[in-house]
Design a binder for these strands. Structure first.
Lengths: 347, 347
DNA sequence: TGTTAGCAGTCATAATCTTAGAGTGCTAAA
DNA sequence: TTTAGCACTCTAAGATTATGACTGCTAACA
């Protein structure tokens, strides 16, 4: 369409309407816009401009005698064109930095903190989905004896995520067994992705001999990570969903029940994996009235997952994007200063 | 008081009122009680009995022309005297059992599953608070090298909880260092509680020599567990709080914000540590309108934490207690069949 | 041609009033 | 002690009215 070219004045008015609506959550009238943003022209003029914007699909009138609210189309334009990355306040920056000062955290704990601080600073619900272990390479596997029949398997991925599980074997475990096993395991698993391991299943079987049970246990562990999305989804501040005046009890209930089903949220957050930043508005049945802003997070240059913020369509996109951005950068810095990427110096 | 002795009929009527109110969430009238529970006597008689029960503080009339609802006092009596542990349904038992079939879970994952299934079966919000590591004995500490400057510290407690953290040291780590360190660490930490370690701080300092930095790191890790209650509190089904008709939006918001602050919930759940089962009704400012049922959970005979269910005062106590009970028993059984308590067979 | 003041028309929201009926308390009789 | 009967109370729901916030349109003006 050609009509989609907005005059500069229309753009300014539209931006003003979105800004006001983000603040007030109630329909914006021509008078309000005139008072707060356009002292130079009359409300009648603004009225006719807004009427035109409505015809173009950018504004919606809930009823004849109400002001207007932005449409999804308006939000999209707003995000693309008008949104500025405003610098965070000193207090907010301090809060974020303070969250990451602890030295001892593994990646999963860092990520939990990230989720918490994103939610705290933005005042929206935040979600972090850790990358599927399927696509991640195994850097090293380590077996540690616990007692004569059980051992701890430690899996270190190239993104630095460390997971461990206890396994129980029918064979007796002694130091020699552990050493042999460790050598063999690393030979088999090092540098492979879970997907590759699944395929290689048959071929390897011959090499294994005494370690067949162990091998099968470890593969089962890897597969179990794949299955349960649950444990790789971190949600913080879900109760903040109650603070948005545009949602009635029913809507809130629906939204929260979707969020509770972590699988669905994981899919939504992980969509568009190749784009650095996404804003999605009302894409899902129950999340019809929600906007989701997502970002890809890296540590050590490796993607570790996606972070998302869920809120009403009229969310404070500028702030959310700024916070996601700053937290993302902070995460990358942590990895530089903290533990480094030298696992491969050992064999 | 002497008046507190209820006649048998009063007791039966009171129980009937509580039962009905649990079902319907709306004031119970004398007629309703007469129809459903007391065909032999008239509603007028029940009316006068209910009036007496009101005088005694067991029932409350929201307004003159309404039925009556139970008071906190009534709920307490109900829980103490009338509640029966009804057997769970086959479906519910199957659901619970299915949650625990996986072989590979460490204690924390088992506990997460427990929280989830408790919430799913009862339809209330569930909370599990893992025992403060302070009171738990350290069974063994293990150091595993990751690269030349960092290592993984694995802490095994006598209740079988395993935690690990990465530490980075200024000294270079080699196999000999690791072995020496492991020996020393176990000499120092084995069988001690965190509280004891804090006190022993000075005395040990002399023995340490080259391992001082390592020691301090590990103590710092132990202390950090003590600090953040956050990571030892698991909440499931918080959104179910929205399903209770007696809560308006504001009340729900308050309750959920208390639940979000995990520290406060942890305190509530951990109160009365010596009692096997507790029902607490409206003990807290924001949780004034809530009841909390808690149980102590053990694995391998060692207390691992407390589980709690949070809901409205009129919650289905029978069911909640039954579920908590059954899940508790299941947990104890897991530990018998699964990995056993033989860590001490190694030195 | 774009802008503006003025004014009638619309419609939601709030306030007020009305009504229906659910449930009680009391009384008097069994 | 129990019960039927009835007057009384009070909420919840529905109907009615009033208010006022906005708009859209028109006509005049730059």
């Amino acid at each position: 369409m050609d009509k989609d070219k907005l005059s500069e004045r229309k753009e300014r008015i539209l931006k003003a309407v979105v800004d006001e609506y983000i603040k007030s959550a109630s329909p914006v009238s021509s008078g309000e816009i005139q008072q707060k943003h356009f002292n130079e022209i009359s409300s009648a003029t603004i009225r006719s401009e807004m009427s035109a914007l409505e015809d173009m699909g950018y504004l919606i009138q809930p009823h004849t005698s109400a002001g207007r609210i932005p449409s999804k189309k308006a939000y999209k334009l707003y995000v693309d064109k008008f949104m500025v990355k405003l610098p965070l306040r000193r207090k907010e920056i301090e809060l974020i930095n303070a969250s990451f000062k602890s030295r001892f955290d593994g990646i999963e704990e860092i990520v939990k903190r990230a989720a918490k601080v994103i939610s705290d600073v933005t005042n929206y619900t935040s979600v972090i989905v850790l990358s599927n272990i399927n696509r991640v390479k195994i850097k090293r596997i380590k077996l540690v004896d616990l007692d004569s029949r059980s051992a701890l398997v430690i899996i270190i991925t190239d993104s630095g995520i460390i997971r461990d599980k206890i396994i129980t074997l029918s064979a007796t475990i002694n130091p020699i067994y552990i050493e042999d096993a460790n050598n063999l395991l690393n030979k088999i698993f090092e540098g492979k992705t879970v997907a590759e391991i699944k395929q290689a299943d048959e071929i390897i079987n011959t090499e294994l001999k005494d370690f067949k049970e162990l091998y099968e246990n470890i593969v089962a562990i890897l597969l179990s990570y794949e299955e349960d999305k649950n444990s790789s989804v971190i949600i913080e501040g879900a109760s903040k969903m109650l603070d948005h005046p545009e949602y009635d009890l029913d809507t809130t209930r629906n939204i929260l029940s979707v969020i509770d089903k972590k699988e669905r949220i994981a899919e939504l957050i992980e969509e568009n994996q190749d784009i650095e930043f996404t804003v999605r508005i009302g894409k899902d049945e129950a999340l019809d009235k929600c906007a989701i802003v997502t970002a890809k997070y890296k540590i050590n240059g490796k993607e570790i997952g996606h972070a998302g913020v869920i809120g009403p369509e009229r969310m404070d996109y500028s702030k959310v994007v700024s916070v996601l951005n700053y937290v993302g950068k902070t995460l990358e810095e942590i990895s530089h200063g903290g533990k480094d990427d030298k696992y491969d110096k050992l064999k």
